[in-house]
Computed example of a mutant assay.
Amino acid sequence: MTVDTSDMLKSIFDTFSGLDYIRPEDIPNIDLYMDQVTTFMEEHLKKTRRYPEDKILTKTMINNYAKNDLLPPPTKKKYSREHMLVLTFIYYFKNLLSITDIQALLKPLTDKYFKKGGDFGIEDIYKEVFSLEKDELAKLRKDIEEKSAISKETFKDAPEEDRDFLQLFSFICLLAFDTYMKKTLIEKLIDSLDS
């Protein structure tokens, strides 16, 4: 089994550089019905799917988010720009955090900044947070390249026919450990919100 991690990483980095977030100005200036929300999210986040048949957000998911207090309820069955921004946060968090953790993280934001008017709201928070992410891609790429190089130095004494797989396994383990530690840190930070 031969795996060319260099080509694979280049392809993944090309995909990363093509990813973009939903800009508030991309969201229509009118409130949307559920079908419009799911269509909008599917269209704008389709590049983040692992498999083409994966659903970004379904009606059931959105209804459950509102029912579980992750998302403020719609007004007359319509969702505002702020709803869309909160849904985007939920979308990115849901693959990493539990519903309880997402609720603990978003509830203070929605309680204080959702539909409050004034000079500072959900849209300002969203813009600030997402503005940080582009700079993080270069750091992420460097970190991943370093982990890839480290993994290529492992299993030098393994049988040649197994070496590529074992080095790939080593690379995945390094990435998984990094993810596990960051996830644990995020959970501890969320737990500290109750303190």
Results as ranks from 00 to 15, higher is better:
residue 58 T to A: 10
residue 5 T to C: 08
residue 75 T to A: 06
residue 30 I to R: 10
residue 131 S to I: 13
residue 82 E to H: 05
residue 164 D to W: 12
residue 7 D to F: 12
residue 178 D to T: 08
residue 116 K to S: 06
residue 156 K to C: 07
residue 133 E to W: 14
residue 194 D to I: 01
residue 143 D to L: 15
residue 98 S to K: 15
residue 177 F to Y: 14
residue 177 F to T: 13
residue 48 T to P: 07
residue 121 G to F: 11
residue 168 L to A: 11
residue 32 L to S: 00
residue 132 L to T: 14
residue 69 D to S: 12
residue 4 D to R: 05
residue 35 D to K: 11
residue 174 L to S: 14
residue 63 N to R: 09
residue 164 D to P: 07
residue 113 Y to L: 01
residue 37 V to D: 05
residue 136 E to K: 15
residue 183 K to M: 01
residue 33 Y to C: 04
residue 135 D to S: 15
residue 78 K to V: 01
residue 96 L to A: 04
residue 189 L to W: 03
residue 104 A to K: 15
residue 57 L to G: 08
residue 71 L to T: 00
residue 59 K to D: 03
residue 48 T to Q: 13
residue 30 I to V: 04
residue 2 T to F: 04
residue 105 L to N: 00
residue 83 H to N: 04
residue 124 D to I: 06
residue 103 Q to V: 02
residue 1 M to D: 06
residue 90 I to R: 14
residue 195 S to D: 12
residue 155 F to P: 03
residue 50 R to C: 09
residue 28 P to R: 01
residue 92 Y to D: 10
residue 61 M to P: 04
residue 99 I to Q: 09
residue 65 Y to P: 02
residue 124 D to H: 11
residue 126 Y to M: 05
residue 4 D to N: 13
residue 35 D to Y: 04
residue 50 R to M: 07
residue 141 R to Q: 10
residue 169 F to L: 12
residue 194 D to V: 02
residue 85 L to G: 00
residue 109 L to H: 15
residue 90 I to H: 07
residue 113 Y to N: 00
residue 110 T to P: 05
residue 46 K to P: 01
residue 138 A to Y: 11
residue 191 D to Q: 05
residue 116 K to C: 09
residue 64 N to F: 01
residue 68 N to W: 11
residue 156 K to T: 14
residue 172 I to Q: 05
residue 40 F to Q: 05
residue 191 D to I: 04
residue 139 K to V: 10
residue 186 I to W: 12
residue 193 L to S: 00
residue 90 I to C: 13
residue 15 T to Y: 04
residue 82 E to P: 03
residue 53 E to I: 02
residue 180 Y to A: 08
residue 89 F to E: 03
residue 149 A to I: 15
residue 153 E to S: 15
residue 31 D to Y: 01
residue 28 P to D: 00
residue 50 R to Q: 08
residue 75 T to Q: 10
residue 183 K to W: 01
residue 90 I to F: 12
residue 43 E to C: 09
residue 85 L to N: 03
residue 136 E to F: 14
residue 7 D to Q: 10
residue 8 M to L: 07
residue 62 I to H: 02
residue 7 D to N: 11
residue 1 M to W: 10
residue 181 M to A: 11
residue 166 L to S: 05
residue 193 L to N: 06
residue 150 I to V: 08
residue 39 T to N: 12
residue 189 L to V: 06
residue 150 I to E: 09
residue 82 E to N: 07
residue 80 S to Q: 02
residue 32 L to M: 09
residue 23 R to Y: 09
residue 91 Y to V: 10
residue 34 M to E: 10
residue 143 D to T: 13
residue 52 P to C: 08
residue 82 E to C: 02
residue 140 L to I: 12
residue 151 S to D: 03
residue 46 K to I: 07
residue 7 D to P: 00
residue 132 L to W: 12
residue 135 D to L: 12
residue 123 E to H: 13
residue 7 D to A: 10
residue 114 F to E: 13
